[in-house]
Simulated scan of single mutants.
Amino acid sequence: MDEIAPYYAQDREHDRLTRGSNRLEFERTRELLARFLPPPPATVLDVGGGTGPYARPLLEEGYTVHLLDAMAGHIERARADPALAGLASATVGDARALPFPDGSADAVLLFGPLYHLTGEGDRRLALTEARRCLRPGGVVLAAAIARTASTVDGLLAGMDADERFRAMRDATLEGGVHQPPASAPGWFTTAYCHRPEELRREVEEAGFWNVDLYAVEGLGNVVPDFDARWVDPERRGRLLDVIRRTERDPALFGVSAHLLALGHSPLPNPA
Protein backbone atom coordinates (compact mmCIF):
# COMPACT_ATOMS: atom_id res chain seq x y z
CA MET A 1 0.00 0.00 0.00
CA ASP A 2 2.95 2.36 0.51
CA GLU A 3 3.47 2.82 -3.22
CA ILE A 4 -0.12 3.95 -3.86
CA ALA A 5 -0.36 6.30 -0.86
CA PRO A 6 1.26 9.35 -2.56
CA TYR A 7 -1.22 9.17 -5.43
CA TYR A 8 -4.25 9.07 -3.15
CA ALA A 9 -2.76 11.74 -0.91
CA GLN A 10 -3.46 14.16 -3.77
CA ASP A 11 -7.10 13.92 -2.63
CA ARG A 12 -8.55 13.65 -6.12
CA GLU A 13 -10.52 10.48 -5.48
CA HIS A 14 -13.40 11.92 -3.46
CA ASP A 15 -14.99 13.65 -6.49
CA ARG A 16 -13.47 11.62 -9.35
CA LEU A 17 -16.75 9.91 -10.22
CA THR A 18 -18.47 13.26 -10.77
CA ARG A 19 -16.14 14.33 -13.57
CA GLY A 20 -15.93 13.53 -17.29
CA SER A 21 -16.35 9.95 -18.44
CA ASN A 22 -15.93 8.74 -14.85
CA ARG A 23 -19.63 9.57 -14.53
CA LEU A 24 -20.33 6.59 -16.77
CA GLU A 25 -18.35 4.31 -14.44
CA PHE A 26 -20.44 5.54 -11.50
CA GLU A 27 -23.78 5.28 -13.31
CA ARG A 28 -23.10 1.76 -14.58
CA THR A 29 -21.72 0.50 -11.28
CA ARG A 30 -24.79 1.84 -9.48
CA GLU A 31 -26.97 0.12 -12.06
CA LEU A 32 -25.22 -3.23 -11.53
CA LEU A 33 -25.45 -2.85 -7.75
CA ALA A 34 -29.18 -2.25 -8.01
CA ARG A 35 -29.49 -5.38 -10.12
CA PHE A 36 -27.46 -7.77 -7.99
CA LEU A 37 -27.45 -6.64 -4.37
CA PRO A 38 -29.96 -8.27 -2.05
CA PRO A 39 -32.67 -5.84 -0.97
CA PRO A 40 -32.22 -3.50 2.01
CA PRO A 41 -31.71 -3.62 4.92
CA ALA A 42 -29.02 -6.13 3.87
CA THR A 43 -25.54 -5.65 5.34
CA VAL A 44 -22.92 -4.51 2.82
CA LEU A 45 -19.16 -4.39 3.41
CA ASP A 46 -17.77 -1.63 1.17
CA VAL A 47 -14.12 -2.73 1.08
CA GLY A 48 -11.84 -0.25 -0.62
CA GLY A 49 -14.78 2.14 -0.54
CA GLY A 50 -12.70 5.32 -0.58
CA THR A 51 -14.57 8.37 0.67
CA GLY A 52 -17.93 6.65 0.25
CA PRO A 53 -19.31 7.43 -3.24
CA TYR A 54 -21.24 4.14 -3.31
CA ALA A 55 -21.92 4.01 0.43
CA ARG A 56 -23.93 7.26 0.30
CA PRO A 57 -26.72 6.06 -2.02
CA LEU A 58 -26.74 2.63 -0.37
CA LEU A 59 -27.39 4.28 2.99
CA GLU A 60 -30.17 6.35 1.45
CA GLU A 61 -31.76 3.14 0.15
CA GLY A 62 -31.77 1.60 3.63
CA TYR A 63 -28.73 -0.68 3.53
CA THR A 64 -26.51 -1.30 6.55
CA VAL A 65 -23.05 -0.30 5.30
CA HIS A 66 -19.59 -0.82 6.76
CA LEU A 67 -16.93 1.25 4.97
CA LEU A 68 -13.29 0.15 4.97
CA ASP A 69 -10.34 1.64 3.10
CA ALA A 70 -6.56 1.38 3.31
CA MET A 71 -6.07 5.16 3.06
CA ALA A 72 -6.52 6.97 6.37
CA GLY A 73 -7.33 10.22 4.57
CA HIS A 74 -10.29 8.61 2.84
CA ILE A 75 -11.72 7.37 6.12
CA GLU A 76 -11.17 10.74 7.80
CA ARG A 77 -13.12 12.43 5.02
CA ALA A 78 -15.88 9.82 5.25
CA ARG A 79 -16.21 10.25 9.01
CA ALA A 80 -16.59 14.00 8.55
CA ASP A 81 -19.27 13.67 5.85
CA PRO A 82 -22.81 14.24 7.24
CA ALA A 83 -24.22 12.12 4.40
CA LEU A 84 -22.28 9.16 5.82
CA ALA A 85 -23.31 9.62 9.42
CA GLY A 86 -25.42 6.46 9.15
CA LEU A 87 -22.47 4.17 8.45
CA ALA A 88 -22.33 1.15 10.73
CA SER A 89 -18.54 1.61 10.80
CA ALA A 90 -15.79 3.48 8.97
CA THR A 91 -12.45 1.75 9.37
CA VAL A 92 -8.89 2.01 8.11
CA GLY A 93 -8.07 -1.57 7.16
CA ASP A 94 -6.69 -4.13 4.77
CA ALA A 95 -8.83 -6.18 2.36
CA ARG A 96 -6.58 -9.17 3.12
CA ALA A 97 -7.51 -9.21 6.81
CA LEU A 98 -11.04 -7.91 7.25
CA PRO A 99 -12.11 -6.97 10.80
CA PHE A 100 -15.58 -8.46 10.40
CA PRO A 101 -16.97 -11.75 11.80
CA ASP A 102 -17.54 -14.86 9.72
CA GLY A 103 -20.88 -14.86 7.91
CA SER A 104 -21.77 -11.32 8.98
CA ALA A 105 -22.58 -9.74 5.61
CA ASP A 106 -25.01 -10.21 2.75
CA ALA A 107 -22.73 -8.55 0.19
CA VAL A 108 -19.11 -7.49 -0.14
CA LEU A 109 -17.96 -4.81 -2.57
CA LEU A 110 -14.31 -4.95 -3.65
CA PHE A 111 -13.99 -1.72 -5.63
CA GLY A 112 -10.23 -1.22 -5.58
CA PRO A 113 -8.51 -4.11 -3.80
CA LEU A 114 -8.23 -6.40 -6.82
CA TYR A 115 -6.36 -3.80 -8.81
CA HIS A 116 -4.20 -2.37 -6.05
CA LEU A 117 -3.02 -5.81 -4.91
CA THR A 118 -0.58 -6.64 -7.68
CA GLY A 119 0.30 -10.12 -6.40
CA GLU A 120 -2.07 -12.97 -7.16
CA GLY A 121 -1.65 -14.38 -3.66
CA ASP A 122 -2.74 -11.08 -2.13
CA ARG A 123 -5.77 -10.90 -4.40
CA ARG A 124 -6.65 -14.46 -3.39
CA LEU A 125 -6.50 -13.42 0.27
CA ALA A 126 -8.84 -10.49 -0.37
CA LEU A 127 -11.34 -12.71 -2.17
CA THR A 128 -11.23 -15.47 0.44
CA GLU A 129 -11.67 -12.89 3.20
CA ALA A 130 -14.74 -11.58 1.38
CA ARG A 131 -16.13 -15.12 1.18
CA ARG A 132 -15.41 -15.71 4.88
CA CYS A 133 -17.45 -12.66 5.82
CA LEU A 134 -20.42 -13.56 3.62
CA ARG A 135 -23.46 -15.48 4.70
CA PRO A 136 -24.31 -18.52 2.53
CA GLY A 137 -25.76 -17.25 -0.72
CA GLY A 138 -24.26 -13.79 -0.26
CA VAL A 139 -22.70 -11.94 -3.18
CA VAL A 140 -19.33 -10.42 -3.94
CA LEU A 141 -19.04 -7.67 -6.53
CA ALA A 142 -15.39 -7.16 -7.43
CA ALA A 143 -14.10 -4.48 -9.79
CA ALA A 144 -11.04 -4.96 -11.98
CA ILE A 145 -9.19 -2.80 -14.48
CA ALA A 146 -9.08 -4.37 -17.91
CA ARG A 147 -5.64 -5.36 -19.21
CA THR A 148 -5.98 -3.02 -22.20
CA ALA A 149 -7.36 -0.02 -20.28
CA SER A 150 -4.19 2.09 -20.34
CA THR A 151 -3.64 1.19 -23.99
CA VAL A 152 -7.08 2.47 -24.94
CA ASP A 153 -6.76 5.57 -22.75
CA GLY A 154 -3.37 6.36 -24.23
CA LEU A 155 -4.63 6.13 -27.79
CA LEU A 156 -7.65 8.31 -27.08
CA ALA A 157 -5.61 10.95 -25.25
CA GLY A 158 -2.59 10.86 -27.55
CA MET A 159 -0.31 9.79 -24.71
CA ASP A 160 1.28 7.11 -26.88
CA ALA A 161 3.52 9.88 -28.26
CA ASP A 162 5.34 9.82 -24.88
CA GLU A 163 8.09 7.21 -24.73
CA ARG A 164 7.55 6.79 -20.98
CA PHE A 165 3.91 5.97 -21.54
CA ARG A 166 4.69 3.47 -24.28
CA ALA A 167 7.15 1.63 -22.02
CA MET A 168 4.62 1.50 -19.20
CA ARG A 169 1.84 0.40 -21.55
CA ASP A 170 3.91 -2.37 -23.08
CA ALA A 171 4.89 -3.73 -19.67
CA THR A 172 1.22 -3.72 -18.62
CA LEU A 173 0.15 -5.58 -21.74
CA GLU A 174 2.87 -8.15 -21.18
CA GLY A 175 2.57 -8.84 -17.46
CA GLY A 176 -0.49 -7.00 -16.15
CA VAL A 177 1.26 -4.65 -13.72
CA HIS A 178 0.71 -0.96 -14.44
CA GLN A 179 3.71 0.88 -12.99
CA PRO A 180 3.98 4.62 -13.73
CA PRO A 181 7.47 6.12 -14.00
CA ALA A 182 8.76 8.21 -11.13
CA SER A 183 8.95 11.16 -13.51
CA ALA A 184 5.14 11.18 -13.94
CA PRO A 185 3.64 11.54 -10.42
CA GLY A 186 0.21 12.57 -11.77
CA TRP A 187 -0.34 9.35 -13.71
CA PHE A 188 -2.52 6.63 -12.25
CA THR A 189 -0.71 4.70 -9.57
CA THR A 190 0.57 1.13 -9.35
CA ALA A 191 -2.16 -1.33 -10.27
CA TYR A 192 -2.85 -4.77 -11.65
CA CYS A 193 -4.86 -5.05 -14.87
CA HIS A 194 -6.77 -8.28 -15.46
CA ARG A 195 -7.55 -10.34 -18.49
CA PRO A 196 -11.23 -11.39 -18.29
CA GLU A 197 -10.51 -15.13 -18.05
CA GLU A 198 -7.98 -14.46 -15.31
CA LEU A 199 -10.49 -12.45 -13.26
CA ARG A 200 -13.08 -15.19 -13.56
CA ARG A 201 -10.55 -17.84 -12.53
CA GLU A 202 -9.40 -15.91 -9.46
CA VAL A 203 -12.96 -15.42 -8.21
CA GLU A 204 -13.86 -19.06 -8.83
CA GLU A 205 -10.70 -20.32 -7.14
CA ALA A 206 -11.61 -18.29 -4.06
CA GLY A 207 -14.67 -20.54 -3.74
CA PHE A 208 -17.42 -18.43 -5.31
CA TRP A 209 -20.17 -20.00 -7.40
CA ASN A 210 -21.99 -18.86 -10.54
CA VAL A 211 -19.34 -16.28 -11.43
CA ASP A 212 -20.27 -13.80 -14.16
CA LEU A 213 -18.38 -10.88 -15.68
CA TYR A 214 -19.84 -7.57 -16.83
CA ALA A 215 -18.28 -4.69 -18.74
CA VAL A 216 -18.82 -1.51 -16.74
CA GLU A 217 -18.23 1.24 -19.33
CA GLY A 218 -18.16 -1.09 -22.32
CA LEU A 219 -18.45 0.68 -25.66
CA GLY A 220 -19.08 3.92 -23.80
CA ASN A 221 -15.37 4.02 -23.03
CA VAL A 222 -14.51 4.85 -26.63
CA VAL A 223 -17.37 7.05 -27.90
CA PRO A 224 -16.39 10.52 -29.15
CA ASP A 225 -17.84 13.67 -27.57
CA PHE A 226 -18.74 11.92 -24.33
CA ASP A 227 -19.71 15.09 -22.45
CA ALA A 228 -22.16 16.17 -25.18
CA ARG A 229 -23.75 12.72 -25.20
CA TRP A 230 -24.00 12.57 -21.43
CA VAL A 231 -25.86 15.85 -20.96
CA ASP A 232 -28.39 15.02 -23.69
CA PRO A 233 -31.00 12.71 -22.08
CA GLU A 234 -31.93 11.01 -25.36
CA ARG A 235 -28.34 10.35 -26.47
CA ARG A 236 -27.37 9.30 -22.96
CA GLY A 237 -30.23 6.81 -22.89
CA ARG A 238 -29.18 5.34 -26.24
CA LEU A 239 -25.60 5.00 -25.03
CA LEU A 240 -26.60 3.20 -21.84
CA ASP A 241 -28.91 0.92 -23.81
CA VAL A 242 -26.16 -0.33 -26.10
CA ILE A 243 -23.77 -0.78 -23.16
CA ARG A 244 -26.35 -2.95 -21.38
CA ARG A 245 -26.98 -5.00 -24.52
CA THR A 246 -23.27 -5.77 -24.91
CA GLU A 247 -22.17 -5.90 -21.26
CA ARG A 248 -21.55 -9.67 -21.27
CA ASP A 249 -20.00 -9.96 -24.74
CA PRO A 250 -16.46 -11.33 -24.21
CA ALA A 251 -15.38 -9.89 -27.55
CA LEU A 252 -15.88 -6.38 -26.13
CA PHE A 253 -14.46 -6.79 -22.62
CA GLY A 254 -11.12 -5.28 -23.68
CA VAL A 255 -12.81 -2.04 -24.74
CA SER A 256 -14.13 -1.38 -21.23
CA ALA A 257 -11.92 0.36 -18.69
CA HIS A 258 -13.41 -1.71 -15.86
CA LEU A 259 -14.89 -5.16 -15.47
CA LEU A 260 -17.16 -6.25 -12.64
CA ALA A 261 -17.11 -9.83 -11.39
CA LEU A 262 -20.19 -11.20 -9.64
CA GLY A 263 -19.86 -14.28 -7.46
CA HIS A 264 -22.04 -16.09 -4.92
CA SER A 265 -21.00 -17.56 -1.60
CA PRO A 266 -21.75 -21.30 -1.56
CA LEU A 267 -24.95 -22.51 0.04
CA PRO A 268 -24.61 -25.25 2.66
CA ASN A 269 -24.94 -28.82 1.46
CA PRO A 270 -28.40 -30.24 2.19
CA ALA A 271 -28.49 -32.75 5.01
Rank of each mutant, 00 (worst) to 15 (best):
A191L: 02
P99N: 12
E120P: 03
R123D: 04
E247I: 06
P39C: 01
E198L: 11
A5I: 13
I75G: 00
S150A: 09
G103A: 14
R124E: 10
I243H: 01
G62K: 11
R123C: 11
T148K: 03
R244A: 14
P101H: 04
L252H: 06
H66P: 00
D15G: 03
G112A: 07
A257Q: 12
G176S: 07
S183Y: 02
V152Q: 04
L127M: 11
R164V: 02
E27L: 11
G62D: 05
G93L: 12
D160L: 14
P101Y: 02
N22T: 03
P233E: 04
S183D: 15
L117D: 03
L173I: 13
V222D: 04
A206Q: 13
R96D: 04
E31C: 07
A126L: 07
L45G: 13
D102I: 02
D241F: 01
E197K: 04
T172K: 09
T246Q: 10
A251D: 14
A107E: 03
L68H: 01
V223G: 05
R35P: 06
G154K: 08
L98D: 02
E3A: 15
R28V: 07
P233C: 10
L252K: 05
H74M: 15
L262T: 09
A88Q: 12
V203F: 07
P233H: 08
G103F: 01
G121W: 03
L267S: 10
A83W: 03
L84H: 08
P224R: 00
L98N: 04
T29W: 01
G52R: 06
E60F: 02
L125H: 10
N210M: 04
V44T: 08
L114W: 08
G73Q: 07
G52V: 02
C133L: 03
E27C: 03
L33S: 06
H258E: 12
D94Q: 11
V177E: 07
R131I: 08
G93D: 06
A42Y: 10
P250M: 13
L155Q: 11
E76N: 09
S89N: 05
T148Q: 12
